[in-house]
Computed example of a mutant assay.
Amino acid sequence: MTDNNKTSETVMQMPSDHPNRRSLLKMAGAGAAAFGIGAMINTAKAKPLSMTTEWDKVFPKSDKVDHEKVSFKNRYGITLVGDLYLPKDRNQGAMPALAVGGPFGAVKEQSSGLYAQTMAERGFVTLAFDPSYTGESGGEPRNVASPDINTEDFMAAVDYLGLHNTVNRERIGVIGICGWGGMALNAVAADKRVKAVVASTMYDMTRVMSKGYNDSVTLEQRTQALEQMSRQRWEDAANGTPAFQPPYNELKGGEAQFLVDYHDYYMTSRGYHPRAVNSGNAWTQTTPLSFMNMPILSYIEEISPRPVLLIHGENAHSRYFSETAYEAAAEPKELLIIPGANHTDLYDQLDVIPFDRIEAFFGDALV
């Protein structure tokens, strides 16, 4: 086990015949909107906030945990809806807890719920939640994201957990997946109540929206994207409703392999959910505006002295996000690279996600 007081870059060893799954990540909110794909006007009226009562997750329900649907408000007055998981075999005393969010464009019925349920099986009270404006959570218009408000959503989840009668509020951690990995790091840098953070297959959404993959966007391209989105605001204001990007993850042929792989997760029985932005729905066309000038990892070193665990697949096209964050973070920190794994292996592949290490990490940190 890694000592939290030491810098560590670890490679988890797996069998040589371990399958090399395809990487599937399409960054929701950046590709189409930032580079000029045409608008689609969504004139549907918003639905009132409601919470499903049936089990509609993409993963089976565990008989080792108790589950309940909950709601709470963030600092901006937006009602968030979450799934609370509690170990069935639990003591009467206050327990450690984890707030879990992500991936970007997903809902709590997908990866974050799987992480939350699995960690509840391992003795933690866990809360997977839908971010503002998405899924079952409130906020208008629908399917818009904000680096500020979505960072706040994590803090609001910590508010909820800290007031729950099963939770020891001095033993709260955070898990962020994909784009919400970056949000988690940003939230924990500011929220000193959180004792430790895990970012799995992390995406820095402000970096990729403003600079493109591998920082490839030129100043001219960035200016053109901002020009388009700025003028789109007049169109949205005139129409009284936002323009939306084309549906995500619908293939027409000729796409890059990682987009094909993304489709294989979000548009198949493996991960499809009708409320997820990435499952054939769309972000508003102006969603990237607030991300373009706001690097969310500027203060990552201020997470210290609380520990950070960054987990990424060896073959993930997004690996550079975690490597950059690891270099910028202060100790104690660990970068865990999973051999042969790609980006979305860490969404739902139980034989790839290092839950033993995550459990040990929080077991050491939330004391």
Rank of each mutant, 00 (worst) to 15 (best):
Gln257Glu: 14
Ile311Ala: 04
Asn293Asp: 14
Tyr203Lys: 01
Asp83Ile: 07
Ala33Ile: 06
Gly82Val: 15
Arg75Cys: 08
Pro242Ala: 03
Tyr85Ala: 08
Asp148Met: 03
Glu255Asn: 11
Tyr266Glu: 01
Gly113Phe: 00
Asn342Gln: 14
Lys88Gln: 03
Asp153Glu: 10
Phe35Ile: 10
Gln245Cys: 15
Leu80Thr: 12
Leu127Pro: 14
Asp215Arg: 09
Met202Tyr: 08
Lys57Asn: 13
Gly340Glu: 00
Asp356Arg: 08
Phe361Leu: 04
Glu255Tyr: 10
Asp63Cys: 06
Val174Phe: 09
Asp215Trp: 06
Met40Trp: 15
Glu220Ile: 12
Asp261Thr: 04
Leu251Pro: 05
Tyr347Phe: 14
Pro141Glu: 09
Lys6Cys: 12
Ile37Thr: 13
Ile337Arg: 10
Thr126Asp: 07
Phe291Leu: 08
Ser210His: 07
Thr79Asn: 14
Asp204Leu: 01
Val125His: 08
Leu251Tyr: 12
Leu185Met: 11
Lys61Ser: 12
Leu84Cys: 15
Val125Trp: 08
Thr43Gln: 09
Val277Pro: 06
Ile311Cys: 07
Ile338Arg: 01
Pro295Met: 13
Val194Trp: 00
Leu259Lys: 14
Ile175Glu: 04
Glu359Leu: 05
Asp130Thr: 10
Asp83His: 15
Met40Ser: 13
His18Glu: 12
Pro295Phe: 13
Ile353Trp: 09
Ala196Ser: 12
Trp234Thr: 07
Gly101Arg: 01
Asp3His: 11
Asp236Lys: 04
Asn342Arg: 15
Met267Asp: 02
Leu185Val: 07
Tyr213Lys: 01
Asn150Ile: 01
Arg75Tyr: 10
Val81His: 02
Leu25Pro: 00
Ala190Pro: 00
Pro147Asn: 00
Ile172Arg: 08
Glu121Cys: 06
Glu302Lys: 14
Ile338Gln: 04
Ala196Arg: 02
Asp261Leu: 01
Thr126Ile: 07
Ile337Tyr: 13
Glu323Met: 08
Gly212Thr: 04
Gly82Cys: 15
Asn168Ser: 13
Gly363Leu: 06
Gly93Pro: 03
Asn20Asp: 07
Trp234Met: 06
Leu226Pro: 05
Leu185Ser: 01
Arg222Ala: 12
Phe258Ser: 05
Pro103Ser: 02
Glu235Thr: 08
Ala94Cys: 10
Ala189Met: 00
Ser290Trp: 12
Lys88Trp: 01
Arg231Ile: 15
Gln228Pro: 05
Ser8Tyr: 13
Tyr320Val: 10
Met27Glu: 03
Val308Lys: 07
Asp89Glu: 13
Gly102Glu: 00
Ala97Thr: 14
Ser304Gln: 08
Asn42Gly: 06
Gly31Ala: 10
Pro354Arg: 02
Ser50Asn: 13
Asn186Ala: 15
His312Trp: 01
Ala328His: 15
Ser298Gln: 09
Glu359Pro: 01
Val144Thr: 07
Val352Pro: 00
Asp215His: 05
Lys45Ile: 14
Glu109Ile: 04
Tyr160His: 10
Met292Tyr: 12
Ala237Lys: 11
Arg22Ser: 11
Arg231Thr: 15
Leu350Arg: 09
Lys57His: 15
Asp364Arg: 13
Thr286Gly: 07
Ala328Thr: 12
Val198Arg: 02
Leu98Ser: 01
Arg319Cys: 08
Ala282Gln: 03
